[in-house]
Every structure is written in C-alpha cells, then in structure tokens.
C-alpha cells in the first residue's frame, strides 16, 4: 500500500504560535493527535499541498534538500517567528516534475536558498511531522482547478509507488473564508458567521461520511462559505487517496474568524 495516511489540516500559524490561547487550543491539540497518527503510519515521505504556496506560472515543486531558517508571517508577525527546518525527498519531487508532463502540466523545480516557503507548509511540517519525514511540496497554481489538482496528487502517488515508497497525503488549508477584518480579543475568537460555522460542521460531517459525501458537498460548501481556494487542498487528498471511507476530526475552530480543522482520513 502506497498511501498509509491522509490529513486535511489548517495552515494558519495561530494555533502553533499561541497554543495556549483557549480559542486556538483545540486546533493545537488536534494537531498533536494527528501527528501521533501520522507517526504511527510510518510513511517514507509526505506529499504536501498548501493553499498558501501560490504559483501562477507553471507547477512548482520544492527540490531544495534542506531548508533551514526563520519565517515571519506577513500578517501574524506580532505573534512570533516560525522556525523552518524542512527536508525534501528530492528524488521523489523530481520524479513528480517529470510526471507532470504525463498529465499535460508544465512543471519546474524550486531549489533556492532563502526561498520563502509558505506559512501553511511550515506550520504543517512543524505540527504534524514530528518524525521529520522528508516532504514533497507542490505549489497551488491558482489557474489549476479542483480536478487538475486531483490528477496531480494521483500522479504523485503513482510516482511514489514506482519508487516503492509509503506516503502520507496532506492537504493544508482552511475551511470557511470569512475572517475578522478588525482587531479582536484572540481569547474570544470564533467562526465569524454562524451560518459559516454550521456549514463547516456539516462539511466535516460529510468528510466523516466518506469521499462520496465529501465530493457531493464540496462545491456548494466552497461557494457558500468562500472556502479557502475552493477547497483545492481537499482535491489533493481526494486525488492522492483515490477516495476515503470516513474521517476523524481531531480539532475544529476558528483562526481569526475563518474556519479551520485538523482531520485524519480513514483510507478506503
């Protein structure tokens, strides 16, 4: 079996930077439980897609073997810095770049010192990847739709299978998109609109019911809640896993009003 685990996680740095904040603690605790599950699945690599790594030209893949440094988020800099210590499975990433040609996608490697790896990738790697498994990181090309993102994830898994590797599939992004655009008391953070909160919870229920229910729900959910990047991070999970039979929600909450969750999928 190539895919040994799969997760949908928030890319907000807030639960990582302030895990003690009561409003963000459930997400931090959810991350800890998901990290245990990922470790137990013993992957050789993590196939990670973050909505926050934006590309507009070509499909980009990280191929720098080791990125080390400190990242300061452009929005949440006041809450602290994010340490970066990310290792990449370069042979697998390069094979994915080659594999993009087979699905008609123009792709490029990214191997540059001080490249600003996005906040979502850093948060997921720090919070979820306690084993320090190497990553394969794919950018979110804003012109790629849900279906093409699924195809790319499926291609990546097929390439991993060709290398005989066990992989975890991780989609990094949020749920409902409405955030507080004025300063708030962070202890009272909550999903901004009650309707979004209800929609988030219903959508998480759909994930728990399996991939058919998730597919049926995602379009309406994304448009009703202005969900993060049309939920393309779920497309990555759907494409990578080929479907799931259920899910467990390890954590749910708000990140400055926007919906966020940590979800582990039950593989089909």
């Amino acid at each position: 079996m190539t895919v040994v685990s799969a997760f949908l996680v928030t890319g907000s740095p807030l639960p990582m930077l302030r895990p003690d904040n009561p409003a963000w603690a459930p997400l931090a605790q959810g991350y800890a439980r998901a990290a245990e599950a990922l470790s137990a699945s013993k992957p050789d690599a993590i196939l990670l897609y973050s909505t926050q790594w934006i590309a507009v030209l070509d499909q980009l893949w990280q191929t720098r073997p080791h990125s080390l440094g400190t990242h300061v988020d452009e929005n949440w800099y006041e809450f602290g810095d994010l340490p970066v210590d990310i290792r990449v499975d370069v042979p697998l990433a390069k094979a994915c770049i080659d594999g993009c040609a087979s699905i008609g996608v123009s792709a490029k490697p990214v191997d540059y010192q001080d490249f600003p790896i996005d906040t979502g990738t850093i948060v997921a790697d720090t919070m979820l990847n306690t084993l320090r498994v190497p990553l394969v990181i794919a950018a979110n090309n804003v012109y790629h739709d849900f279906a093409s993102t699924e195809r790319m994830a499926a291609m990546a898994v097929a390439v991993a299978a060709g290398q005989g590797k066990r992989v975890a599939v991780v989609g990094v992004g949020g749920l409902s998109g409405a955030y507080f655009d004025r300063s708030i008391d962070i202890a009272t953070d909550h999903v901004r609109h009650p309707a979004d909160d209800a929609a988030n919870r219903a959508f998480l229920d759909a994930l728990c019911a399996g991939s058919d229910a998730a597919r049926a729900a995602v379009g309406a959910f994304a448009s009703a809640t202005k969900a993060d990047m049309g939920m393309k991070h779920l497309a990555w999970v759907l494409g990578g896993t080929g479907g799931f039979s259920g899910a467990k929600v390890h954590g749910y909450g708000a990140t400055y009003g926007a919906g966020a969750a940590v979800v582990e999928f039950v593989l089909a």
């Binding site: 934006i54 030209l57 600003p116 996005d118 655009d181 004025r182 300063s183």
Partner: peptide, 23 residues
C-alpha cells in the same frame, strides 16, 4: 494584509528577498 493597513515600523530592514513566484 487581512486585518487593516500595516506600515513598516523597524528603522532598518535588511535580508534576502526571494520572489515566491519568480525565484
């Protein structure tokens, strides 16, 4: 920025800026 209008407020800023789109 999501929450308001922000202003650089450090007297001297230096470093290496790598464009995430055109590295």
């Amino acid at each position: 920025t999501l929450v308001g209008h922000h202003f650089l407020g450090v007297p001297k800023l230096s470093g290496r800026s790598v464009d995430p789109i055109f590295p």
